[in-house]
Write a protein that binds this DNA or RNA. Structure first.
Length: 195
DNA sequence: CCCTGATTCGC
DNA sequence: GCGAATCAGG
């Protein structure tokens, strides 16, 4: 695959939108995220500020061949530490429109989304996906679970027909993508369930 | 271990 | 110019 006009355009667009290099690579196909990053740098848009007209500081540091003694590092310019406590949470609060053209419009915070007032029901698609996933689940036992295996239980714990999904989890979350979709149901249907 | 981007350098 | 290998950080 070569970098055609179109592909470069897609690259630029997605990069500007804040998509990760791997996502872009996946979208484009035929290239690795390394290729994408390399291209990004060659295009001179490593800084995701669209303008890129500002100071283009150049690190004069040279690196060793890296194999025998990969020790020296460029040591990128570091800003002075701020004495003031910094906000830990990265919230989607309004940013100054003047200097912040775009952050990450698409990627969620990584936290489970709060229940949506309007869309409480689990989408039929999600349920469908879950059924599919359960068929292809890795059927891990409790002790086989790791930090990033889906911990969604399947079957009856009281019977031998019990296992855990075990598919790769969505980053940060305890479940795979399919189960994340159904895991956080805002307790609507069981609301008026009678015991 | 999963991911992220950054850099180098042989091709 | 290209991108795998590598580095560095979360």
């Amino acid at each position: 695959m070569s970098w055609t006009e179109e592909r470069v355009e897609t690259l630029k667009r997605m990069w500007t939108e804040g998509q990760s290099a791997s996502q872009i690579a996946k979208e484009l196909g035929g290239v690795t995220r390394n290729a994408v990053i390399g291209k990004v740098h060659r295009l001179g848009l490593s800084n995701r500020a669209g303008g890129s007209a500002s100071a283009a500081a150049k690190p004069a540091a040279k690196e060793k061949p890296a194999k025998p003694a990969p020790k020296a590092k460029p040591a990128p310019a570091k800003k002075a530490e701020d004495p003031a406590p910094e906000p830990v949470v990265e919230a989607p609060v309004a940013e100054t429109p003047a200097l912040a053209p775009l952050r990450k419009p698409i990627i969620p915070a990584g936290q489970p989304l709060p229940p949506q007032p309007s869309a409480n029901e689990i989408s039929p698609e999600a349920l469908e996906t879950v059924r599919e996933v359960e068929k292809t689940a890795k059927k891990l036992s409790l002790m086989e679970l790791t930090e990033r295996t889906c911990k969604w239980p399947i079957g009856d714990p009281a019977t031998p027909d019990f296992w855990f999904c075990g598919l790769p989890v969505q980053q940060g979350k305890p479940y795979c993508e399919a189960h994340v979709g159904v895991a956080f149901q805002p307790m609507s249907s069981r609301r008026d369930r009678k015991r």
